[in-house]
Each structure stands twice: as structure tokens, then as C-alpha cells.
């Protein structure tokens, strides 16, 4: 009976850790992986808040298309910020 509440707490905690690490990191390939992990945490929170259509639209965009787009741009420009 407490299961949705515990899941909500754990994944909110993990999402704020992943957001801070994604901004401070200098190697932008690792920062894109942290962004994908934050997208997974948010998708699970969308499911616990009972919104199935938004979950199905958010999973491919945040964990599939945005990191691939950033990888394509990184290959053609610089990879490590100064």
C-alpha cells in the first residue's frame, strides 16, 4: 500500500542528483548520459502520477532522440568544454 509513495521519494531524490552532475561535468558525452538518466527518473514519476499518454510521449524523446541529437553535434564540434 505504501509502494507508490516510496517510489516517488526515491526517484525524486535521484533526479536532483543527476541534474546537478549533468551541469557541473566538463566532458559533454558523460553529461548527455546523465541527462538520459534524469529522463528515466522523470518517466517513472509520470507513471506514478497516473498519466500514461505523457509517459509514452516522453520516453523516446528524452532518452532516445535528445541524447542522439547531442551526440551528432558533439562529433562535429568540440567534445570537452574549457
Amino acid at each position: 500500500m505504501f509502494l507508490p509513495v516510496i517510489i516517488l521519494l526515491i526517484f525524486a531524490f535521484l533526479s536532483i542528483v543527476a541534474t546537478y552532475l549533468a551541469i557541473v561535468e566538463r566532458d559533454m558525452l558523460v553529461a548527455a548520459i546523465f541527462m538520459a538518466f534524469q529522463g528515466v527518473c522523470y518517466a517513472i514519476i509520470y507513471y506514478v502520477l497516473m498519466a500514461p499518454d505523457v509517459t509514452l510521449a516522453y520516453i523516446p524523446i528524452s532518452s532516445g532522440l535528445t541524447p542522439i541529437l547531442i551526440l551528432i553535434v558533439l562529433k562535429k564540434t568540440e567534445r570537452i568544454e574549457r
Binding site: 541534474t19 549533468a22 551541469i23 548527455a32 541527462m35 529522463g39 522523470y42 547531442i70 558533439l74 574549457r82
Partner: peptide
Amino acid sequence: SRPSLIKKTMSLVLFTD
């Protein structure tokens, strides 16, 4: 606070989410 344009774009995506 970060001087790289790609980092600014990634932060904007997190803000919208």
C-alpha cells in the same frame, strides 16, 4: 554560468522538463 553553447542548450532542455 557555463561558456559553451551546447551546455546552455542542455540546461534549457532540463528547465523545460
